[in-house]
Structure formats: C-alpha cells, structure tokens
Nucleic acid binder design. Structure first.
Length: 439
RNA sequence: GCGGCUAUAGCUUAGUGGUAAAGCCCCGGGUUGUGGUCCCGGUGACGAGGGUUCAAUUCCCUCUAGUCGCCCCA
C-alpha cells in the first residue's frame, strides 16, 4: 500500500471519469439529507401500516408499455431499454413504480390479503432523457399504493398522509394541485369538445399548442403563452362534462381535504403524463413565486382500471410517488436544519507501535459500546493527531503512548477545556459513557 | 429530439499567442508525547481532437462533458 497518492497521472485512461450522464454520486455530506428523507418516510409509512416491498429495477418492457401507455412520452422517448443477448429489447429499467406494484399485486394474489392492501417501496427509477434542474436519468422515489378501495376517502387518505409526512419533514411552502380526470369515456368525449374549441381558434394558438392539439390535447390547458391561456380560460371544462358520479367523487375529495386543512387548489390543467389515471390526480408543488413550474416533488392519483388492464380482477387503487431528490432540494431551499447523527465524539491518538495495538483494542471496545469515534491509526506525531481531533470536533481525545501502555491507563483530554486526566483502561468505556451521557 | 451558456488543481477563482497564479482542502515541518490562531515548505490543472501560427491553455472548427431552458416528468 503506497503511503502517498500517486504523484503522476496514471496511464491515459480511455473511459470516462465521471458518473454517467444524469446520474449522481450521493456523497457523505449529502447522505444526511438522503437518510433524513428515506428513513422518515419509511418509519412514517410503516406507522400508517404500509408494508414494504422490494421490486426488481427492471421489468418486461411490455409491462410498462401496457401500464403507462404506449403513447405517453415516458414510453415513447424516455424508456431505458435493456439489450439482451440475442434478443431484442425485452426489458426496460423501471420508469415508475406503479406498473411493477400492480404486476406484483396480481402475481402474488394480494387480492386475498386483508383489504385495503397498502404497500410501499423506496429505490431508483430511470428515464432516458436530457438531464436538467430536478431531472435525472437515475432518480429515486418512495412509491406507495393502496389497492382495493374505490372510496374517495382513500384518495383523501393518501394525500393527507403525504401532507403529514412533508409537514413532519419540516416542509411548509407547498400547495397540492388537484384535479379529476373522470373515467376514460368521459375524458374522451371531453377531449373532443376541447379539440373543437381549439380548432375553431387555431390562429390564436402558439406553435407548441398546435402540436399538442394532436399529441396531447389535455396539455393545451397548461400552456404558459398568454394567448393560449386566454383560450384555456374560455375552453370547456372537464368538470362540467363528467358524470354525476365522477363529480360526486371529486366533491367528496375536495370537501374532505378542506376539513383536514390540506392546502390545495383545483388545477384544471393538471393531467399527469400517464394513461392509467382515473378520477383524482394530484401534485405537491412548491409555492415559488416565479417559474419552476416543474418542481413537483410528489404526485399520484387514482387508477381504478389498471389492475384489470394488466390481467387482474377489477381492483380500484390509489397511489403516489415522492421524488426524493426533489424533496431534498426543498429541504435545503426551505433551510431546514438537520441534526447530524454520525458525528464522532471521541478521537484516539496514539504514539508508538505498542500504543497502536492497544488503540485498536480500545476502538473495538468503543464500537461494542456504541460510542462513535474517529482515528488515524496510521499517523504518527501528537500534533498532527490533535489537529485532526480538533477538526473533527470531538468532545474528547484519548491519548495513548508508551507510558500509558505500561501503566494500563489512558489520558482523557477534554477538547474544549484542554483539561486532561488519567483513567484506568478497564474503566475507560464506562467513564466515556458517563461523560457523553450515553447511559 | 431541439436551443442557450460553460469547460484552468479535489473545490472556488485569476491569467497569458511563448505551457500558468491564488485562496480553501490535502501532505510535511515549526527541536524530539499535545489541537484550535500563526509561520514555512510540498503534491496537484489549462476536457479531447483538428486547424491557423515559428509557437496555442489563450484564436477558429468539431467532438465530449456539465449546466440551464423547450418538450415532458419525480
């Protein structure tokens, strides 16, 4: 093992020295945010009796095509397909969680589990697209699903749980955008009306919207161009064209969210990019003054037809996904302070070969006693080691040299006051526990 | 898939048509077993390729990467 890093550059490398486009290394400094979100979410969901599931990160390509929708952008241009030897692209990295969840639900006969079936998973997801702010090729989500309830109170429950979770994380500056998509039949009829409206006003539309008219008409309502917004304001509203039943469902959701004091607003332009939604859809969006239209950090909705679509029995369901990177972004943005838990309390400084051996034995004991410590056992010289101790902001430094080894003692140095005392080795751990208030 | 911007040490930046400076970080030292300030020293970089030129990190082109935006999404 060389004790210095190579001074000269190694042989010229031909492979890239950066993580693949759109991926990130989550470094130690970043971990505290990461763990804060994932651990809180996991505890929280378990508390609400959501059960954990681990799913493969790739599936048959056909599953996503069927579940997400063959015409959606996700399938059309963002699918991370896997080439398999000798076969075509049979697999794809998962772009979202619901498809796999539904597949697992059907495959393992969860319809016979006590209802509703509440499950969640946390992990990486993949979309092959150009990275930019808040958009990665590998990103991470908490995915939660509730199977077996058609009642609107379940839509409310999911939104409410998310809201409480974000509040617990300390987030405050957001609104829930809410909309209903009715059922496919209602939507289809409505889209016809919508297209008619826009066709009549084709001259007043922006170029993008002319494309949207054929590819994604519901998005027309969402356009930021001023002239298009005026058109959107006069456009027929889906709410006026859905059935009584659908309307009742949505009214219930709105009323109940209001009673629960969840901050929401109805956003007719909210349509979601996946085909499987019915009735309620929602997005948690930061209340930023300008731009940042797509900083949505959680979203979801009801999908009553998907289980059947994928070959199961008709089963109503509601689900949601939390974008971990985006939540972390919000936490930083809102300046939420995290308590660091991995801070070492002790630094072990040693002098001489004998002391190094004893130091390792002491570290073993500290570990067993759950006392977090830091060290640089390879280092010689007291000055350098105490500098380290100082930088690491430990409470105590243990000093261990020739003399202490012979006497079977350790010097305990308080890093704040500089006071030192000699402690018997056998009493070291209990002394530290007492001083660190660990017992 | 399309467009804007950027590309100098691990990080943040400076600078020049003749191969480059600083701060932070890292390593060593400031008399031989003691930190926080300070002082001294050290390692370490012009994304890649091509062109113009006596000479390019500096000018031009291409590529690559990063970043931001469009589309769309977590």
């Amino acid at each position: 093992m060389p004790d210095k890093e190579t001074t000269k550059k190694g042989p010229t490398v031909s492979f890239p020295l950066s993580s693949p486009r759109g991926t990130q290394d989550i470094l130690p400094q970043e971990q505290k945010y990461w763990e804060y979100v994932t651990e809180t979410a996991e505890l929280f969901l378990r508390g609400w009796h959501f059960q954990p599931i681990e799913l493969p990160i790739f599936e048959e390509l056909a599953l996503f095509q069927r579940a997400v929708g063959g015409d959606t952008d996700i399938v059309q241009k963002e699918m991370f397909e896997l080439k398999v030897r000798g076969k075509g692209a049979h697999y794809a990295l998962r772009p979202e969680g619901t498809a796999s969840m539904v597949r697992a639900y059907i495959e393992h006969g969860m319809r016979s589990w006590p209802r509703p079936v509440k499950v969640f998973t946390i992990g990486p997801f993949f979309r092959y697209e150009r990275p930019q702010a808040g958009r990665l090729r590998q990103f991470h989500q908490v995915d939660m699903e509730v199977f077996g309830s058609a009642a609107p109170i379940t839509d409310v429950e999911v939104i409410y749980i998310l809201h409480l979770l974000f509040r617990q994380l300390g987030l405050e500056d957001y609104v829930v955008h809410l909309n209903t998509l009715g059922v496919p039949k209602e939507r289809k009829e409505y889209i016809k009306l919508l297209k008619d409206h826009y066709r009549r006003n084709k001259t007043k539309m922006c170029r993008d919207c002319k494309v949207r008219l054929t590819t994604n008409p519901l998005r027309l309502l969402d356009c930021k161009e001023e002239k298009c917004q005026q058109l959107a304001n006069t456009a027929p509203r889906l709410l006026d064209h859905i059935s009584e039943e659908s309307k009742k469902h949505f009214d219930y959701v709105m009323n109940t969210l209001e009673q629960l004091q969840v901050p929401f607003q109805v956003t007719p332009g909210l349509v979601r990019g996946l085909d499987y939604y019915t009735h309620t859809v929602f997005e948690f969006v930061p209340k930023v003054v300008d731009g940042q239209a797509h900083a949505t950090f959680a979203s979801g909705g009801r999908y009553d037809l998907l289980v059947k679509e994928l070959g199961g029995r008709e089963t109503s369901a509601v689900g949601a996904a939390i974008g971990i990177e985006r939540v972390v972004e919000r936490i930083k943005e809102e300046g939420i302070e995290l308590t660091v838990t991995d801070q070492p309390r002790i630094y072990i400084a040693q002098l001489g070969d004998q002391a190094k051996v004893v130091a390792l034995q002491i570290m073993k004991e500290l570990r067993e006693a759950d006392i977090p410590f830091a060290e640089s056992i390879d280092r010689d010289g007291m000055q350098a080691q105490l500098k380290m101790a100082d930088r690491l902001k430990v409470d105590w430094a243990l000093i261990l040299g020739q003399k202490e080894v012979i006497d079977s003692t350790v010097i305990l140095r308080n890093m704040e006051s500089g006071m030192q005392e000699v402690v018997d080795r056998e009493k070291l751990v209990s002394e530290l526990q007492r001083r660190l208030n660990l017992i």
